[in-house]
Every structure is written in C-alpha cells, then in structure tokens.
Computed example of a mutant assay.
Amino acid sequence: MIAKNVAAYLIIFISVIALLVLGKSLLIPFILGLLIWFLIVEFRTLLLKIPFIGSKLPAWFWTFASAILLFLLCGLAINVLIENIKELSKQIPNYEANIKMVNSNIDQTFGVNVFESITDYAGDFKLSKLFSPILNSISDLFSNAFMIVLYVLFLILEESVFRTKLKKVFPENKKFDDITVILEKIKTSTSNYITLKTIISLITGVASYFALVIIGVDTPIFWAFLIFLMNFIPTIGSLIGTLFPAVIALLQFGDLLHFGLVLGVVGIIQVIIGNFVEPKLMGNNLNLSPLVVILALSFWGALWGITGMILSVIITVIMVILFSQFKATKPIAIFLSEKGNI
C-alpha cells in the first residue's frame, strides 16, 4: 500500500515537473500577468480612497485607469531600457579591449592573473557570454509583453464575473465561504508582497541610479533596472545586482578605484535598504523557512532560469497558503513555514 502511494506521488511529481518545463512559454507570461493584475488591484484600492472623487466614480473606471497608467509607465520604461541595451551592446567591444589593461593592473597590485585563471577554468573568456543570460531573460520578458498584456486584460474582465461563477460552482454557503477565504488570503498575501517588494526594489534602483551617475558608469539606467529586478531574487539577488555594475566600472575605467566605489556605494545602499527599510515596511509577512527560500530559489531557477528565481518566493508563498487549507497537505505547509505556524 505504501509502495503504491509513493509510486503515485512520484508519478504526480514527475508529471508536474514535465508540465512546468514544457508549459514554460505559457505559464511565465500568465504568472507575470497575474502579478501585474495584483498591482492594478492595489493601485485601484488607493485611487478609490481619493477624497471626493474615488467614491463617485465606479470601480471598473479606476481598474482600467490603473491598468492604462501602469501600461504607459511600463511602455516608457521599456523604450528607455531598449536604448540603454543598444548602447551597452556598442560598449561591450570597448570593455573587452580593456580586459588586458585591467588584468595587468590587478596583477601588479595583487600578483594574481585573474583572467588567465578564468580562462584556464572556463575556457575562452568573452564578456558578452557573461551578460547573455541576463540580456536573454530581459529580451524574453519584452518578447512576452503582448501575451502578458492580453492576460491582464482578460483577468480584469474575468474579475467582474468570477464571484458569480464561484457561487454557482459552490452553491453551499459554507463551501463558498471557505473557498472565498482561501482566495482572499492568496490575494492579500500576494498583493502585499508584490506591492511592498516593488516599492522597496524601486527605492533601491533609484538610489543606485543616482550613485552610478555620480560615479560616471555607462548606461546607469540599465544597471539601475537590473538592480531593481535582481532585488526580487532573495539572498543572492542584491549581490548580483551590485557586482555587475562594479565589473563594468572596472572595465570602463580600467582601475580598481571605480570598481571599489561602485561596490562600496551600491553595496551600502543595498545593506541599508535590505536591513533597515525592508524589515520596517514588510515585517515578517512571508512566513517562509530560510532553507525553503534557498531551495525554492534553486528549484525555480533550474526550471525557469532568472525569471523563475524572481518568481520563486511568491510561488512558494501561494503554495503554503494552499497547502495549509487541506488536511492532506497541511504537514507540507508546516514544514515550509518559518516556525511551524500557518
């Protein structure tokens, strides 16, 4: 009996993994569209609270107003980023030309031939290879923009009739109320996390942008956006977001001073916001074990790359909420939680 159960669970697990891998091109735009919809709902809630105006106009007006405003901001950001990516692509050959000079300076200062060691370990070193995973992820995000917008529009339309459909599926009041509570928990937890994390990441990105402009690093908007994006990745995201512009400063100026400046200033911004601002705003709302966060990061990163790493925490939060509502999966939710309280 136990062997049959284990085999059944194993088959289900393998099937889910296969579905996640094969359905990647459909699932990622849908999840991103869902997260944008959560932002729209939060923004609509704020607009409805505007004195004298919010309550006089219908909710659907504020929904579409929020969506249009958010899409316009995203469109503007995408245009600026595309220009910065083009500029960065032009500069990469210049950075590669400076590698020998940088290597010579490091060798003279520390007696270590860095790039020779990298070449021995990883083969022919090309700067374009270093940036290709991130640039590919951003390109994939832009290429899926139409699908994401389409999903958001249909989610907005579905919201108005979803409660009616749910009531027909669960005509009994108790079942309907239980399902409504579960969905409300998912909506509240997801909306809070996405909204607060976006604000925190935006503050980090803007502060880093001004720091990079003052230091004189090329394409500061692109690196600020990368820092904003990487801030959604737990634990290692802030390190990656700080290290990339620091390496670019090293290759751009050819000295360790600018490398240290970027690493120090942007690193301090990350430390201050990560250790003081973020805990004040977010508290301990996630209720996830630190080990689970790292495992989720590795798992979703292996399945969906950088996009999966960005989405790893929020997907795990939703899983904990769902698992905690059913007797069979409640033990899983307890193990995933931080202290066993769900």
Rank of each mutant, 00 (worst) to 15 (best):
L39C: 14
A207W: 09
F154T: 02
I240K: 05
V317H: 05
G205T: 05
N5I: 06
A122Q: 03
F115A: 05
T63E: 15
L127Y: 05
F61S: 09
I294C: 05
V266W: 05
I186D: 00
V149G: 03
Y9P: 00
L135A: 06
D255K: 01
F30S: 02
Y9M: 10
V217Q: 08
T242L: 09
L48Q: 14
I334E: 12
Y95A: 03
L166T: 04
L202G: 02
V262F: 07
P29N: 11
V112L: 14
S289I: 02
V206W: 11
D218E: 11
A296F: 03
E338F: 01
L35R: 02
F64A: 03
P133W: 06
W62P: 00
I194V: 15
A67Q: 08
P220M: 11
I227S: 11
I138K: 01
V313W: 01
A97I: 06
L135G: 05
P290Y: 00
Q252D: 14
G264P: 00
G305D: 07
L336C: 07
A328D: 08
K197F: 15
T316D: 06
K56G: 06
P245V: 14
D218K: 02
E116W: 09
G33A: 10
L26C: 07
T204G: 13
S132T: 04
I2Q: 14
I321R: 01
I310H: 04
F244N: 01
Q252N: 12
G205E: 08
N284I: 08
F13R: 01
L27P: 01
V41F: 10
F146D: 02
G111C: 02
L322Q: 06
N98H: 13
V112H: 00
G241C: 09
L303Q: 02
K165A: 07
D124Q: 10
A302I: 07
A77S: 14
S201T: 00
K327L: 09
S324G: 08
I186Q: 02
N94F: 06
K174C: 05
F131N: 04
L196W: 14
C74Y: 01
M147N: 04
K280V: 15
L81P: 09
L127A: 04
G267T: 04
L239I: 15
V265F: 06
L20M: 13
